[in-house]
């Protein structure tokens, strides 16, 4: 039997009625079985706020022939208020992983504390083996999927980028439900509508971008996002990851030009 071999095997029957009992739609869970997250379980279950409070807007990631680039502006909003204007949302995780976070910034900080602790443990082994971007993305899917399954999601949408051990670039997106995919361009927030089509349009067939093309596209996209996304600021940081290591550069300033504004009439 499968169950005798590991403690990870799931019980055959979950959340259902006991044998011989009728299924009660509201009483399927007992108090002990309620999620063990921070809140105290009440006798009728728990109601949680799932609204995001302080939010980061878009993250854009582009994969090119020699690595990946991630960009995010430095604004963290409180509703429509531009509350924190100089916060870096692109993080260096280790020598070969970058992570860009959008969505509820408290949840980003929470997951970052977890990741940082993992990296410290990783370093403690002192075995010259570092976590790879694919592993982190996979780990993120499991954390986020389990949280959504307990109806207590982390309201975040992250981009994981980096370079695998053999030098191949890796870029993926993981959302709050644990949905994950890899592509040469991934984005969250408004960049999904505004930046992804711009980048796809410029993709040469059967060929990856060059570093030069990727950085040009990042610059262009961050400008478009600043003009059209109301929850964007004009400063942004860019994370670059290559086989030689990675780092976060900036903050850069969008090359803004409002001279055309005077010519717009009719509203």
């Amino acid at each position: 039997m499968l169950n005798n071999y590991n403690g990870m095997a799931q019980p055959l029957w979950q959340n259902g009625p006991a044998p011989g009992e009728f299924y009660n739609f509201t009483g399927g869970q007992t108090v002990q079985k309620l999620p063990r997250e921070l809140t105290t379980a009440g006798p009728y279950g728990t109601k949680r706020s799932t609204a995001a409070i302080t939010t980061g807007s878009s993250v854009l990631g582009i994969r090119y022939d020699g690595g990946v680039m991630l960009a995010a502006d430095t604004l963290v909003s409180y509703g429509s208020l531009a509350r924190y204007q100089n916060i870096d949302r692109v993080f260096k995780i280790n020598k070969n992983i970058l992570l860009g976070g959008s969505g509820d910034f408290a949840d980003i900080q929470s997951i970052m504390r977890n990741i940082d602790q993992k990296m410290i443990e990783d370093q403690c082994y002192d075995d010259n083996i570092e976590m790879k971007p694919k592993s982190l993305a996979s780990w993120m899917t499991r954390v986020l999927y389990n949280r959504r399954s307990r109806m207590n999601p982390l309201y975040i949408d992250v981009v994981v980028g980096g370079v695998e051990q053999n030098g191949t670039p890796y870029l993926a997106n993981v959302d709050l439900r644990g949905r994950a995919y890899e592509d040469f361009v991934v984005a969250t927030g408004f960049a999904r509508h505004l930046a992804v089509p711009l980048v796809r349009e410029n993709k040469p067939k059967d060929k990856e971008f060059t570093a030069e093309e990727a950085s040009q596209l990042i610059r262009k996209c961050m400008e478009v996002l600043y003009y059209r996304d109301t929850r964007n600021s004009s400063t942004y940081t860019v994370g670059v990851c290559t086989p030689n290591g990675c780092g976060v550069e900036g903050p850069y300033q969008v090359n803004e030009n409002w001279t055309f504004a005077a010519t717009i009439k009719g509203y």
């Binding site: 009660n24 009728y44 109601k47 799932t50």
Partner: peptide
Amino acid sequence: DYQVPGVKHPDFSP
């Protein structure tokens, strides 16, 4: 059935 407080989460769909 269906009216116990705490089991409805209309703002998040898994």
